[in-house]
Design a binder for these strands. Sequence first.
DNA 1: GCTGGATTTGAACGATCGTTCAAGGTATTC
DNA 2: GAATACCTTGAACGATCGTTCAAATCCAGC
Lengths: 193, 193
Amino acid sequence: MVNTAKQDRQDVIQKATGLFWEKGFHATSMRNIQQVIDMRPGSIYASFGSKEGLFKETLHHYAHTGLARLDACAEASSSPLEGLKLFITESVTGSRKSAPSGMCMLVKTISELTHDNADLLAEAKRLLGVIEEAFAVLLVQAKERGELDSSKDPERLARYLQVQLMGLRAYARANDDDAHIDALIEDALGCLG
Amino acid sequence: MVNTAKQDRQDVIQKATGLFWEKGFHATSMRNIQQVIDMRPGSIYASFGSKEGLFKETLHHYAHTGLARLDACAEASSSPLEGLKLFITESVTGSRKSAPSGMCMLVKTISELTHDNADLLAEAKRLLGVIEEAFAVLLVQAKERGELDSSKDPERLARYLQVQLMGLRAYARANDDDAHIDALIEDALGCLG
DNA sequence: GCTGGATTTGAACGATCGTTCAAGGTATTC
DNA sequence: GAATACCTTGAACGATCGTTCAAATCCAGC
């Protein structure tokens, strides 16, 4: 029974993530969420406390899913560097058609929120840092394997890749030309060889 | 009198731009705006028609200001390429402390809005395209002067710079370390020489 | 099948949203 | 100074916001 309840909760969080990701924090009303997850206000507030509480859980869910996908990319590839490139390429091109919003949900969140929701803002920043660390770990592995120029600083390169990923996804949301996007990915990841 | 009225209108739009830029479209209420621009609802709606109408004018104001600043950077620099680099550097580092939000207002808008505000979304995309064109114009000038490798495609490079600018400003919003930002700008603009 | 605690329900709350419009004010013209 | 045209005012509208809570429902243990 615990399993079922947990499954339900995860299912609810997943559906809420889709909504928040698509419409953002402010434009998503609790009534939108009630409809999508088929729960009444009382149950939602008993489970998550508030709209902010639910949103924070969706941020965690989003980040965890992203990290899992990064691991999957690394395992599916012949090298850490190829895994990283695959992850970034997938994130940019894949999320264009399937994902709720082309944008990264964490970037969307730090873009939308202000000090009025200070802890949500801080949490999104923190999670972006976690992802950056995961990039750095893969880059260290690549360096150890000799796939990466030993003069490069993995942490600096991880920051650079974050910039590229953020920029590419934002650009892809503003521009529809697939060929241009592909060329931009090539340019952005060129320094990885 | 026409001049005064126009000045007033520009002043109103400028103040509204600051609010929308900081808080975004949905989180900014018409009452917030009434307070900041010191006008009553009737006057605002007589002047701008709707919240969307006012927001669209602030988008234009923002883009126009950005283009003017790009021109100023180009004139202040010894070359088109240096002007472009100055503009990007200024946009990333300057907007960190002074601007309402570290983010580009146009990127923030395409990040926040969905098909529910289709024309505002389209307008923000269009204005980003205008800015990209202005980048391309400067790059063509740089190419003619021989400052840019003749093998480079100015339009592709303009798209690349848009990605860098979007990514850098988003990253700067998530991360406070000035030294890291400076290094990232260096990495991002390295291809310009 | 009854009981008691946990869960779900949905009507309702006060606040705030974007917007309207009759009423009041102001400036210009004769 | 009266009349006209224009602009501003702010109370008020219906809708929707995030949230609450008494009542209804569910379900395990006896």
